[in-house]
Nucleic acid binder design. Structure first.
Lengths: 195, 195
DNA sequence: GTTATTCCAGACACTTGTGTATGGCAAGAG
DNA sequence: CTCTTGCCATACACAAGTGTCTGGAATAAC
């Protein structure tokens, strides 16, 4: 009665290294970026992690609960990068604007795909949409502060912040992949127009 | 042996009025907007149309073929609105810019949700992404022409067209719903900054 | 060295979607 | 009126996903 080779089924021959709740969330994040919410399937995530679904329900009650956790994760980590720019001590308005552009162009700390994926998700989930709105308003507020430091007042600072932010969101929404160099070449024009 | 009330099962008591291929595509379009590609299910569309899936496979070989038809439909009808603006006879650059803003704000001919939905779709389908890219480039070309009519030259016209277009895409991507009045109030600022 | 806890494998029942096959009504052609 | 063609209902087979349950291995606790 063919006993299965139980031991070698393990994720490697390494010592036991349990996944933990965060690993499932991270896998869900990647899946969301690559395939959208429809791609977040417990089976697929398990395969991606090199296990079966067995352990999933130890961490989460349901797939729905995983999605909630994923959204929370995004909300927690998506405003910090913008918040610290206007609050940077001893920097001029021009410096801060440059910091903002760098944040977007370098794409090191800020991952636009992560952002875009959540935004897609929001289009079909009012709950997610609400969260995204809150984050957007916070970010625009921070950018508006930058334009105030540049000397703009009132509504003009607000509209300039909007144009800047919406433009960037649109850029990512288009799914363009321009080289870093091309984007740097266009930067002076952007600076002239916006700031 | 309980014969079913066959006659009254019909979509109404009206005379027979077959759906036709386009009706299925239109239903798919609505479903895409409301729920994304995952929401495009043959069963749901049938329910929406008041029939069963019986007739679907008379028009389409598969669900996949419906999606292809839907993408084609979008590509065919999504550049025309932009194309005719720069080609409008006897209009100044300022007029044309205003026509562009009107096209976006009125949201009569141009349905931003239809656009956004396809863009979301493109994020997880390279085939769709390709089509969307082509459309975007065409549109930006038309807008660039408007800025040339406004007197801008070379790269500046190009970047201004980009900022304008990307900003608008971003605006819709954010899923904001501002009143027409609010948007009209902000318009002078936009005009000052962009044109 | 027991014992308990943590995490995972695999089988099961259930649900929901696709595509096929068959039969039948309705409307126009003859 | 008859017959053909267009369009739809319904039943069926199949595939794929979710959530539950049971058992078992690996590690930590004692």
């Amino acid at each position: 009665m063919a006993t299965r080779p139980r031991t070698s089924t393990r994720r490697a021959k390494q010592a036991r290294q349990p996944l933990g709740r965060d690993a499932w969330i991270e896998a869900a994040r990647v899946a969301l970026i690559e395939e959208g919410t429809a791609g977040i399937e417990v089976n697929k995530l398990a395969k991606r992690l090199g296990v079966t679904r067995g352990g999933f329900y130890w961490f989460f009650e349901s797939r729905e609960q995983l999605l909630d956790a994923l959204l929370d994760h995004w909300a927690e980590t998506s405003t910090v990068l913008f918040e610290r720019i206007p609050k940077a001590p001893g920097r001029s308005g021009a410096d801060k604007f440059k910091m903002l552009v760098d944040l977007w162009i370098s794409e090191k700390e800020y991952d636009p795909r992560w952002d875009s994926a959540v935004r897609d998700w929001a289009r079909t989930s009012s709950k997610v949409l609400e969260t995204v709105h809150e984050v957007d308003l916070k970010r625009i507020g921070f950018i508006e502060q930058i334009f105030r430091d540049l000397g703009y007042r009132g509504k003009e600072a607000h509209v300039r912040a909007r144009v800047t932010y919406y433009h960037q969101v649109g850029y990512y929404a288009l799914g363009i992949h321009e080289s870093r160099q091309v984007r740097l070449e266009l930067m002076p024009y952007y600076t002239k127009i916006l700031a």
